[in-house]
Structures are given as C-alpha cells and as structure tokens.
C-alpha cells in the first residue's frame, strides 16, 4: 500500500486516505475538438511500465488534488507536486532523471514554457 506526501498540507498519507484519479496532465478537448482528439482525451491512456504521472486527491485530508510522479513497476515515488501545472515542474523532472537517466519527457521545454506563459 502506497504512501504519498500531499504537497499542499505536507502530510505523508497512506493510500486509504487518498483517492486515485488516473493519468495526469490530460488536456481537455472541448466542443470544437475533432472526433480523434476527443476520443484520445477520453480514452487513450499511456499506461506505461515505468515513469508515470498521476492524479491523487487527499480525500481524507485537506481535500486537494495533487499529482505524483511514480514508477509503475518499482512503485518508486519521484515526487509529488501541485495540480495547477500543465507539465511536471523541473525539480520533478530532475528527480526522475537522477534515478532513470534514460527517461525522456514526452513534452518539449518549449511546450512547457509556452503553456505556462499562457496560463
């Protein structure tokens, strides 16, 4: 049973205090989206063996949704961070790289920059 540290209240919570929310950083496709984009938004999930970003709610706690970077195979937790970000922050990327040197983000730094500027 996992333990994750809620980045909002700092509590190291066990899985029974949390509510899982699936893959993180999905980009909502609204009424104008194409069938393909909308299908991908609703159903296409990466489901990787390895580094994964996912949503958790500190349900029996402060009630906030947060994101976790985790290895789905070893269950190693690279870090948790606040949900209000379109991409994992640099310190999370660094923490992953420290343990998984071969891992590559599937977004570009330019993308990340452009999107956080747009926020």
């Amino acid at each position: 049973m996992l333990t994750l540290t809620c980045p909002y209240c700092g509590v190291e919570a066990e899985e029974t205090e949390l509510h899982p929310g699936g893959e993180a950083h999905l980009k909502r496709v609204g009424p104008d989206g194409s069938d393909e984009d909308f299908e991908a938004y609703l159903f296409a999930r990466k489901n990787p063996k390895g580094v994964h970003f996912e949503r958790w709610r500190h349900a029996y706690g402060c009630g906030k949704w947060f994101l976790a970077a985790r290895c789905t195979a070893s269950l190693q937790v690279f870090g948790t961070y606040k949900a209000q970000t379109p991409h994992p922050p640099a310190e999370i990327v660094d923490a992953i790289r420290a343990h998984r040197p071969d891992w590559q983000p599937d977004w570009t730094p330019e993308q990340a920059q452009a999107e956080s500027a747009a926020e």
Binding site: G21, R28, R57, G63, W65, A83, Q84
Partner: peptide, 11 residues
C-alpha cells in the same frame, strides 16, 4: 462535491 473540486482545482 468531489467532482466540482476536481474541475476547480485541476482545470
């Protein structure tokens, strides 16, 4: 309530 908070916090 959770659904509302999800959209407010994450979207």
């Amino acid at each position: 309530h959770g659904h509302m908070e999800d959209w407010l916090q994450c979207e």
